[in-house]
Computed example of a mutant assay.
Amino acid sequence: MLFSNIPKLALLGYLTAQRVSGEVVPLDSNATSIASPPALASTTATPCICTEWSQISPAVAECTSITLDNIQAPASSAIILTKLKTGTSVTFSGTTTFGFTNSSQFRPIQIAGNNVTIQGAPGSIIDGGGPQYWDGLGSNGGLPKPGQFMKVQITNNSILKDLYIQNYPSHGINLAGVINSTVQNIVLNNSLGDAPNNISNGLSAAHNSDGFNVGNSVNLLLKDCKVWNQDDCVVVSDSSNVTVRNVFCSGSHGLSIAGGGTGPGHDIENIIFEDSVVTNSTNGLRIKTDFNATGSVVNVMFSNINLSNIKNYGIDIQQDYLNGGSTGIPSNGVHVADIRFLNVKGLVVPAAMNYYILCGNGSCENFIFEGVDIQGGGDTSSCNYPEGGCPE
């Protein structure tokens, strides 16, 4: 464009318009002035980089790339990301904290979305403030504590990744209704809760601190995660086509299947746990089905698992489970079949059992043990199925 024939006032206005908006603003009919530049409100609209909790809701409504930077959520104020636009990316940056919320109904982080990415920036920390709540009782009593620290329902090639979460009050990440998605490189570090505190009566201060609760999910890959906690490391219920790969568990109740329930719909099938480590834990690998429940657990494989310093059972399958204590008398309403243990090795402590299997009458079928070698237990193993007894 040549500027020699444009009056100086118009030229100055044109260049100013270019600097303000990046677009040409048409000259008026006299070519001596320009129309007013666009209002600058659009450049100061809803922030997609949130530094205050109050900015999150409008950002979710407007943005598809959101950063939550050093958010300090007030008491009773959840980070709600349940209405994310399709394809949205959310990044947790800096340190995320929550005000003390004395309620078992409180869910500090809630996520739902289609084809979304939820991730942590390098060095970021999400801190649940667990020491404010831990009393050795978890969700079984004592001080009311936020349950399900992070509730996640993501679908259609979504991914949850690269999060470092520490000191969550009770249950960790609840993967409920996750479909065709991946969870990877998550650290759940509740190791601070291993030691007793002044109100836990000598018990580990943190309790019921499940790592990952997987329920009602289909086609989920959970991989490359590390969990330090005081309850199930990963527990799968009412789901199908779930693979748990390369997970490290310490201080937990092990890698678990929780089967059965009241009424229809409590079926679990095509579950793989592979290439993982369970150490310093109560149990190694476990299938527990509720006493007097119905449902099924079919086609489950535990492959390439290393166990060490296991306190109760190396491999545990029991159909007498009740929260807070087992009955010792199995029921047979949950069909458990096609269960494979391949290349499972390791050590339990002398006071533990290498194997414990307690099936209901006729409810277990086709258990396969190949390359299984668990040693160290001084308490005699007990297996009422298969007919040949325990693997050893």
Rank of each mutant, 00 (worst) to 15 (best):
D232K: 04
I109D: 04
G388P: 08
G263V: 00
V178R: 12
T117N: 01
T32Y: 00
L285T: 05
T51C: 12
V152T: 07
L81H: 14
G259M: 13
Y168I: 10
T88S: 09
D275Y: 05
I34T: 11
Q166R: 06
Q319P: 11
S239M: 14
G147V: 15
T182L: 04
N114H: 11
T51W: 15
S158E: 06
V242F: 01
W134S: 01
P196E: 15
A206Q: 05
P108W: 01
T294P: 01
G99T: 09
Y164G: 03
T51M: 07
T86L: 06
I125D: 05
L2A: 05
S381A: 09
W53A: 13
C390M: 12
T327N: 03
G261Y: 00
S281L: 06
F3A: 15
P37D: 02
F149N: 00
V183I: 04
F92S: 01
I34W: 09
T117P: 11
L322E: 11
Y313P: 01
G324C: 07
P26L: 13
P74C: 14
I310R: 03
I186L: 06
D267F: 12
Q18Y: 09
N157E: 13
N5E: 03
D338F: 12
Q105K: 10
I6F: 15
E269Q: 15
T32A: 00
L81A: 10
E365K: 04
I257K: 04
G113V: 08
S209F: 04
T16H: 05
G259T: 07
C233A: 03
I315R: 13
T67G: 03
N361R: 11
V278W: 00
I126G: 00
G360Y: 00
Q55S: 14
T282F: 11
G94W: 06
D194F: 14
N366C: 13
A45M: 03
V227Y: 05
E269Y: 15
